[in-house]
Amino acid sequence: MSTRKKNILKVIILGDSGVGKTSLMHRYVNDKYSQQYKATIGADFLTKEVNIDSDKIATMQVWDTAGQERFQSLGVAFYRGADCCVLVYDVTNTKSFQNIKSWRDEFLVHANVSSPETFPFVLLGNKIDADDSKKVVSNKAAQDLAASLGNIPLFFTSAKTAINVDTAFQEIARSALQQNQNDADAFEDDFNDAINIQLDNDTNSCSC
């Protein structure tokens, strides 16, 4: 409030259709859950004021994208200028897990980020409230994937029961803010390489 120029953090949520991107966004922003979301067309947009590490305030602009492959061609309109990309899969859907890597590549192709190696991604395994019998993606596989994608943070979440959603988005906000400042620094000083921020390697496993 005091600073005139507020930080705006742009966050993109990607993942297969039906993994719960919209639900996650609404759970985080409005703390609500509904079974009645329509399939996202194009992208939905919500914002939330975030307080990062209890001293930095920023506005997070969340773009919740459509999951169907057909809509990928318009990604560029939404990806540009993103500070963090959230990759979501459904722990009850193997295919959605397998597609994570292609979602990431897709993003990097379209977003035109300055340094793809350090761009912050966060991986979310959603729907962990589901019966164990339905879960088909093991935590181990997820941790391996997160490691292979550059040790990106991994959270197991449930939009339905709100497990880990706030925690995950705190991390998302932190990553986005760092990325945002990196970009600003890089802009100010061309001689500096982009500072390579080591992200916290906190692959939170859920307690259940």
């Binding site: 329509k38 067309i41 194009g42 992208a43 947009f45 318009l74 309109a77 939404f78």
Partner: peptide, 17 residues
Amino acid sequence: VEFIQFAFRWMNCLLMR
């Protein structure tokens, strides 16, 4: 603001949403 950011859905669903 880019038109595609809001108008894509208008076209894709003929304003039904």
